[in-house]
Design a protein around this nucleic acid. Sequence first.
DNA 1: AAAACAGGCAACCGCTGGCCC
DNA 2: TGGGCCAGCGGTTGCCTGTTT
Length: 285
Amino acid sequence: MENSMKKKTFTESEEVELRRGPWTLEEDTLLTNYILQNSEGRWNVVAKCAGLKRNGKSCRLRWLNYLKPDIRRGNLSPQEQLLILDLHSKWGNRWSKIAQYLPGRTDNEIKNYWRTRVQKQARQLNIESNSDKFFDAVRSFWVPRLIEKMEQNPSNTYCCPQNNNNNNNSLLPPSQSYDSMSKQTYTDISGKNPGISNTDGSASSSTFMPDLMTVPHFMDHNTIIDSSMCYHEGNDQELGGYIPGMEEYYMRNSDISTDCHVAEAYEDVTQDPMWNVDDVWQFRG
DNA sequence: AAAACAGGCAACCGCTGGCCC
DNA sequence: TGGGCCAGCGGTTGCCTGTTT
């Protein structure tokens, strides 16, 4: 990325050295102070009035993705990851739309998460990240593991969209999708999504919190996995990283749409003396 | 210890659609 | 109605940092 200044025509009569590249602390302070005092407004005006040698676009991006007070930083919680997986299965790369349902998270962050974490999983399986095969693998393996994490740390909260059960692409089984879960309430932090409401149709201001007693039913009925099978001792890595066993699972169940007796198939396959590497490779995409 | 490599992420680029004149 | 401006969006780039060799 070019860090040097770049000359650019600003107006007909004025030429300004526009800065590019990483923002300095001073620039952050200028922008933040200006917006807190004057609100956002037009970004080119903001850039100029705040005394920044940046274009409006750059200011907007910096504010929305980094400086805005309600931005949440740090690792995505299992709930957030689960939500991203599910919403992406419905909407594809509509990052901004997905971000609306993860308060404090930006579209850029979600996009980066998808590209660096989720697509990595797909690459390891040598299949397309947008393919049905990959969604099946995610639904059958990743989702249960995320749910298990949620059970382990129920203090996390997240907000949840109105589930559209007309869309069969959801990673969550229809009968167990968000709006069919008991005791749920929805909230729309962004305030921009009128479709979100409680199951009784009323608006809610409380944060959605999954009823943990219902969580096991979250999983696909066609797979025979319980959460104990998803647990890998000593592995406390973030779920955004490699999911242990997922690859083996996928290779053994390359035709996941058919009956899938994972409970039998997935018992520590790496130690299975019957495990034949040559057989495994033929299942790769 | 240092070079090479890989992953994560901030920032930029280009396109699109909405609004205003 | 069409042209210009602007915000928003998704894709891409490249720097930084941690890890491996």
